[in-house]
């Protein structure tokens, strides 16, 4: 909290008193139930409208961009892919290049699984998610990221995340312990959507540079998340 000048404090306490009076008035038991009723009714309307908006937006996305159709044709997907996704793909490739043998082994194993799967059934193209900070971070700083998983098939899917270290310039790396994924394991029901949190805690001795880490699902090659962070002194 920043320190306040005395006259500002006085003015502010006047406003706060009025605000307190209003809140106190509402806490009066006689009108509490009416207030609660009004607010509950209002909140229900808001939640319904937000849900309706999300549904309508998804329907429009479906009409404008037929995801299923496009996913079955990777070339078409590349033609339509947006600029920011291009950047994400570039970063992903950079990250892959920079990763150690451990990651190479991991990606080879994932590719092998995907190839096997392709022989049996046509799988959608891999979905790539990019997590990045708007601003560079300093050693010792933390940042929270979130991404959403959606199970669009009719089968439940078990997800077990695995992560690499963060790989930076000149062979520098930050141990994967700096990344905490919550939840680490989850089961997605058909058509279910779940949010996943990733907390990055940079060690105090992190060296400056651009770092990339890869988060994948050990069971499913379709889940690939690239985390990109710039560390400054």
């Amino acid at each position: 909290m920043a320190a306040k000048k005395p006259n500002e404090q006085k003015k502010s306490s006047g406003s706060r008193k009025l605000a307190d009076d209003i809140l106190k008035g509402i806490k009066n038991e006689e009108i509490l139930s009416s207030a609660q009723k009004v607010i509950n009714s209002a909140v229900n309307v808001l939640e319904e409208e937000i849900a309706a908006g999300i549904l309508a937006a998804k329907k429009i996305e479906k009409k404008v961009l037929d995801v299923d159709n496009i996913r079955s044709d990777p070339d078409d997907l590349m033609n339509r892919i947006r600029r920011d996704t291009h950047e994400a793909v570039d970063l992903f490739l950079d990250a892959i290049t920079a990763l150690t043998n451990k990651v190479n082994n991991l990606t080879e194993s994932e590719n092998a699984k995907a190839e096997k799967a392709e022989a049996a059934i046509v799988k959608p193209s891999p979905a790539l998610t990019l997590l990045e900070t708007e601003q560079p971070l300093q050693p010792g700083q933390s940042e929270n990221f979130t991404f959403t998983l959606f199970e669009d098939s009719e089968k439940a899917a078990k997800i077990s995340f695995q992560k690499t270290s963060l790989f930076g310039p000149n062979g520098q790396s930050i141990n994967g312990r700096a990344l905490k994924i919550t939840p680490l394991n989850l089961t997605l029901k058909p058509k279910e959507e779940r949010e996943v949190n990733v907390k990055l805690s940079l060690p105090k001795n992190a060296q400056p540079g651009t770092y990339n880490a890869l988060i994948t699902d050990s069971e499913n090659a379709l889940v690939k998340v690239v985390l990109n962070v710039v560390v400054i002194p």
């Binding site: 605000a19 209003i22 509402i26 009108i31 207030a35 009004v38 607010i39 209002a42």
Partner: peptide
Amino acid sequence: KNTAQYLAGAALK
């Protein structure tokens, strides 16, 4: 008026 007051209280909160 009461309804407006309740909602303003909720906004303050």
